[in-house]
Structures are given as structure tokens and as C-alpha cells.
């Protein structure tokens, strides 16, 4: 699905966020990305979803060189990629239903987009997506009145409505409680399995990454530190990945946790 060849991103001519990165992701693959804060995960995602162009290197999406795309063709490719943002990026003043349905904006003709602001078109679709993330009752609430975790789930619902081929989830569970987090990760994985969607997820929780994803990539200083099946990731790998971070001095280097049963997730999430 993706083929990256020596892709770099340099900000302001001095901050190297992604450094000559090679990466191959097959269609339908599920992979987790871990790494310190500032390792370049979000920057990589913004290149993968065609928001920012790489400073150098080539990026192929579905064997398509997207470097020169513009206008309608660019939008058509973007439509096939769904992103769940770390900061949710919802419009606070809009009702939840509009935020969820905005996943459809790429597909809707303009008149329907306009009319939907007055009377939501396909409200059932939004309801269904919200049910999947467990907050259907919030459909007509103002988005800014929701808690952080609820907003995060609205953002996920927006991507569900968009129904893309690739889901890029940037810390999709950073503001929900651990039980719910596991539930949401599982939901996204199930979804990608059933519909053969490609799923790439940034996670700060090493446990979640190792427990749920067949392939785990460690990113450090904009480079790939390791790219392994979850079973082959050792404590050494993790120590290198997080070396020099404050966590190390605090004797808190993440390590392979004892395989503990994933805490019960909320019933409506297991559907």
C-alpha cells in the first residue's frame, strides 16, 4: 500500500523530523508504531495522509507517485486514507453529528454538504458509527461539551464514516481509560480485519502495541530503530528505542509486560 524510499522531512531547514526513512506497508497490514515523544511519528503520518510533502525521497501510495498530485486527483487519493488525530481536531462548536458526518465531505456533492448543515443527511450513519465507539447518545450534543475521551471517540467515528482503505490512527487512545483503550484498539483491528483495511497506529503504550499488532515498528529520531513481528521485540530493542529518555533514569524503561489478560472492555465495544 505504501512504499517509502529514503523519505525525509526537515522543518524550517533545521529540525529533522523524519530522516531517510524506508518503509513498506502491504495492503491489509496492521502495524503499530512506537517511539519517544518527538520521534517523528506524527510527522510521518502527515506525509502518509498527503498533508505535507516530504522534503526529499519518494513516497508511493498504491503504486502511485503522489508527489506531483494536485487538485481533484489529490483529493481523491486523500479520500482513501482516514486519519484519527492525536488532538482529535474536531470543530468544537458543531454538533457531534456534523463532526462525524464530515468524514463524508470528500464523497458528498456540495449541495448535500450544505443541506446537511441544516438537516443532517445520513444521520443513521453517524449514529451507527457512534454506537460502534460507544457514545450514540451524544449524537446531537455540541462537540465542545464532550469530555476528552468522548471527543477522541467522535474523531474515530468520523473516520469510520469516511470508510477509507487505510486508517492512520495517531494515538487514538491517549485520552481514554485503559480498559476503553484496549477496546478501541481491538475495534479498529477487527474493523481492519473484516474489511481488509490497512491500519497503522501510533501508540505510546508499548503493552498495547505488542499485545494487539503483528508488526511493531520502533521510531527514534526520525529513523526506524527496529521493524519486527511483535513476538520478536525484546527488552533490548525497547531499551535502545527509549535510551536517553528521562524514563531510563527513572528506572522505567518500558519492558515486555507479563502477558496479562486485557482488562474487560465495555460490552458495547466488543460487538
Amino acid at each position: 500500500m505504501y512504499l517509502l524510499d529514503r523519505v525525509s522531512k526537515v522543518f524550517d531547514g533545521r529540525t529533522i523530523a523524519v530522516n531517510e526513512l524506508d518503509l513498506k506497508v502491504r495492503r491489509g497490514e496492521k502495524l503499530a508504531m512506537i517511539g519517544q515523544s518527538g520521534a517523528g511519528k506524527t510527522t510521518l503520518f502527515r506525509m502518509l495522509n498527503l498533508t505535507i510533502p516530504p522534503t526529499s525521497g519518494t513516497l508511493l501510495f498504491d503504486r502511485l507517485d503522489i508527489g506531483r498530485l494536485a487538485g481533484r486527483r489529490l483529493r481523491e487519493v486523500r479520500r482513501r486514507i482516514g486519519t484519527v488525530y492525536q488532538q482529535h481536531n474536531l470543530v468544537p462548536r458543531l454538533q457531534v453529528v456534523h463532526n462525524v458526518l464530515s468524514g463524508k465531505l470528500g464523497a458528498w456533492p456540495l449541495w448535500r454538504a450544505v443541506r446537511s448543515l441544516i438537516r443532517p443527511a445520513e444521520a443513521e450513519l453517524a449514529y451507527e458509527a457512534l454506537s460502534q465507539v460507544g457514545i450514540p447518545e451524544k449524537l446531537y450534543d455540541r462537540t465542545e461539551t464532550l469530555s476528552g475521551g468522548q471527543q477522541q471517540r467522535v474523531a474515530i467515528a468520523r473516520t469510520l464514516v469516511q470508510n477509507p482503505e487505510v486508517i492512520l490512527a495517531d494515538e487514538p487512545v491517549s485520552s481514554v481509560d485503559p480498559a476503553l483503550a484496549a477496546g478501541i484498539v481491538k475495534l479498529l483491528i477487527e474493523l481492519s480485519e473484516t474489511y481488509r483495511k490497512t491500519l497503522i497506529m501510533n501508540l505510546h503504550s508499548v503493552d498495547l502495541a505488542l499485545a494487539h499488532f503483528p508488526r511493531v515498528i520502533g521510531l527514534r529520531d526520525g529513523k526506524i530503530s527496529f521493524d519486527l513481528p511483535a513476538a520478536e521485540v525484546t527488552d533490548d530493542h525497547l531499551a535502545t528505542l527509549y535510551a536517553g529518555s528521562e524514563a531510563e533514569t527513572a528506572e522505567e524503561v518500558p519492558s515486555r509486560a507479563e502477558p496479562h489478560p486485557v482488562r474487560s472492555c465495555q460490552p458495547h465495544l466488543t460487538s
Binding site: 529540525t15 517511539g35 519517544q36 515523544s37 518527538g38 520521534a39 492525536q86 488532538q87 482529535h88 469530555s147 476528552g148 475521551g149 471527543q151 477522541q152 494515538e171 487512545v173 491517549s174 485520552s175 481514554v176 481509560d177 485503559p178 483503550a181 505510546h204 503504550s205 508499548v206 503493552d207 498495547l208 529520531d221 528505542l241 527509549y242 536517553g244 529518555s245 528521562e246 524514563a247 522505567e252 518500558p254
Partner: peptide, 20 residues
């Protein structure tokens, strides 16, 4: 946005000097 920085599990805190 609320809660953007709360992680649910261990994470590598700010390591090298960042310019954010």
C-alpha cells in the same frame, strides 16, 4: 484540546532537546 498529553501507559517522555 483536553487530555491530549495524557497517555494511558508508559511512554518515552521528552528525551532530547525539542524545539516545540
Amino acid at each position: 484540546m483536553p487530555g491530549q498529553e495524557t497517555s494511558i501507559a508508559r511512554r518515552g517522555p521528552l528525551g532530547r532537546p525539542r524545539r516545540t
